[in-house]
Design a protein around this nucleic acid. Structure first.
Lengths: 155, 155
DNA sequence: TTACGTGCAAATAATTTGCAGTCCC
DNA sequence: GGGACTGCAAATTATTTGCACGTAA
């Protein structure tokens, strides 16, 4: 359950701008994104942004939420992940064709993909540099450049 | 394996090494890959490799085969695409998370992804260059480096 | 002949959607 | 109170699999 008890008072469990214990700034983050800070969204946001940069699939987040004592339906997980993505809080990455991963690091960066474990890992920000990028087909503009370095256990 | 017994008329419709009309070298390609040159595989190979480098999805190949007068079941399309991939004739690319595309260009190269049309286009071979690639996590070796430049219609 | 291939339909897996009930503002 | 949000289950989409039959070697 919630380890903080800060008298929600006025009906809502979260009080706008001020950082209510347990909400931290999650509440504000959601409001700023134009999303109502509901119980589910708060719980998911805390899981997603509570421990540094993460790369997570819907299914995995579902399991985490369940185990964290905040069961959220899978449909809501998907909805929320997409809402967060639309709001710019997350970035969707498609590395493995079967699952979609969501990245809490929305900055410009690239990834290592561990083939053995199907894990996605951020590449050090300053590492890679790309040159001689061919100009895109005519009439097109570059939306983004995604680099994925697939790695496997060295034998 | 027998390499020189190419007596036409011995039962199969395709006769090993020599270019039988209608087979071209497709036949040999399949044999070399360790795959029996069946009617379906020949038809699909012709569609795949008959017109330069392509990026195609199973569904699309299915439609093409049907229209080409060589209907092949969707299951066989999938099986065949994976067999070809395993044999090194194709390369699977996951750019869009929903569909898997198969690339007839198995060389080292990168792609443009046209977001508007969901099309995959090869990037000129000589264009891009990547530097300062961070070393992979310890105990790991690089399997491949995939670069996808997403482009959209310039407004 | 005989093992490998193929087609079909049912089975999965990941994700989306319709809708009735719930909750935030 | 009212519209935004959720949960559930059914619907979709992409792909895989089991199994009887067909076909290349």
């Amino acid at each position: 359950m919630k380890q903080n008890d800060t008298t929600p008072g006025s009906g809502g469990f979260c009080h706008a701008e001020q950082a209510c214990p347990g909400c931290g700034n999650t509440c504000k983050m959601l409001r700023d994104a134009g999303l109502r800070p509901t119980r589910q969204r708060m719980a998911l946001a805390d899981l997603l942004f509570g421990k540094g940069d993460r790369h997570i699939s819907a299914e995995l987040l579902f399991d985490e939420a369940s185990q964290a004592g905040a069961p959220v339906s899978l449909a809501t997980i998907y909805n929320t992940l997409h809402q967060f993505t639309r709001a710019g809080l997350l970035k969707a990455i498609s590395i493995d064709s079967s699952k979609t991963y969501f990245d809490t690091n929305t900055g410009d960066h690239h990834h290592f993909y561990l083939e053995d474990t199907e894990e996605v890992v951020d590449m050090p920000e300053n590492g890679i540099s790309i040159a001689n990028l061919p100009s895109p087909p005519e009439g097109m503009e570059i939306a983004s450049v995604d680099v994925v370095v697939r790695v496997r256990r060295a034998r």
